[in-house]
Design a protein around this nucleic acid. Structure first.
Lengths: 206, 206
DNA sequence: AGCCGAACATGACAATCGTCATGCGCGAGA
DNA sequence: TCTCGCGCATGACGATTGTCATGTTCGGCT
């Protein structure tokens, strides 16, 4: 039997150490070969065009465009490249957003290392790879219940901005800002804006 | 020349994928050998005793006891083991706390992969390894200005608890809690408790 | 002993926040 | 077409928060 051409990989993660370590781990597999590495969305898109890799490993948390948006851009730039999203946080909102952005798989960094190579192979074969526990949580949690305005003001409130400050930034009256926050507090089941922001972040809603 | 005995490593990180990936990266070096892996502080201490590794790679963010406390416990359990703290966040407070806990080095995950093996060798040789930029920041930021009470109430406030709730948890009057929070707000230069909590977390003060 | 500063504790007062009632505009379905 | 529901916007009202003046305790220093 003739040896198959290896699956060519592009690794995207803002942390250099993680890029190198994942590369080392995957290069141990005979049928996988790391051909590129990128630290942000722009580099990722450029390398996807130049290298047309078979699979792109994508971390979600990055400075600038996040991994979700980067996934969408990579898929547009190189449709033959499958994207496997690898993330630290098992947030249902992330899973949903990643799949909608065109990701072929979603795996958390808690997963055993042996599973990673398998996930890459499955994604390359066109299969959907999703952590079962996370898929269930996503179903249970349901979709993001927050409206655009609510997300917008809640993000700012979570950073400690006052209602008046937020009102000035989004061109609303302070009362309206408080009202949107109140709605967000109700939908998250929180008792105040700080807790609401924390919960929404936990679930990947903002 | 006779081959040196390899440097024996214990890797501590709550994320299985990262443990495996770091292990793969370091095992590429001829003079380094991964002999153990642990997912939390308890496992780390147990393995330090059983294996007496030369160097322990320690992540800071972990469930249960954090990496700082784990460092202290590993040093006590196996004094011959040097600890190299590896963290995602370059927070000056973390650096100071890690060194006080007995860490021999502190490196962030942004660092280039080649640097990691070198850092391990230096720590093993008994040298201090610290990211220069971070050391400067630590000097500039100074020590944690918050008192014990201020840290305590600010942590709870950051999770969205109200003054009354916090008061009940720490056995103080609501007014006293507000007063401690006010002090913390002043020391962090924030405008309210939420921002104060965010800033304090950023700097590794809570 | 006497003094001093730091951490901690408390209640009064003004500013800000969370909730509610109310209204507008717009797309979906009867 | 006429509702109905939803997102959005606003101001009034009670609840919570942030600040300030004040007081207590405790260790260090002269």
């Amino acid at each position: 039997m003739v040896a198959q051409a290896p699956i060519r990989l592009l690794i995207v993660d803002d942390q250099a150490l993680v890029r190198g370590a994942l590369g080392a781990l995957l290069d141990l597999e005979a049928d996988l070969q790391t051909v590129g590495a990128a630290a942000d969305a722009d580099e990722a898109v450029q390398q996807a065009i130049e290298l047309a890799p078979d699979v792109c490993l994508m971390d979600i948390q990055m400075p600038g465009d996040d991994g979700i948006l980067a996934t969408k851009r990579v898929r547009e730039a190189s449709p033959s490249t499958k994207v496997l999203v690898v993330t630290t946080f098992a947030r249902p909102g992330y899973l949903r957003a990643a799949l909608e952005a065109g990701a072929g798989g979603f795996i958390v960094k808690d997963a055993p290392p042996e599973q990673l190579a398998d996930a890459v192979r499955r994604v390359h074969a066109g299969l959907r790879v999703v952590d079962p526990a996370l898929a269930e949580a996503s179903l249970f949690e349901g979709a993001n219940p927050l409206t655009e305005r609510e997300r917008q003001v809640l993000r700012l409130a979570g950073d400690g901005h006052s209602a008046a400050t937020i009102a000035a930034e989004v061109f609303l009256s302070a009362g309206t800002v408080r009202n949107h926050l109140s709605a967000a507090i109700g939908k998250t089941g929180a008792g105040n804006r700080a807790e609401a922001a924390r919960i929404a972040r936990d679930k990947g809603w903002i």
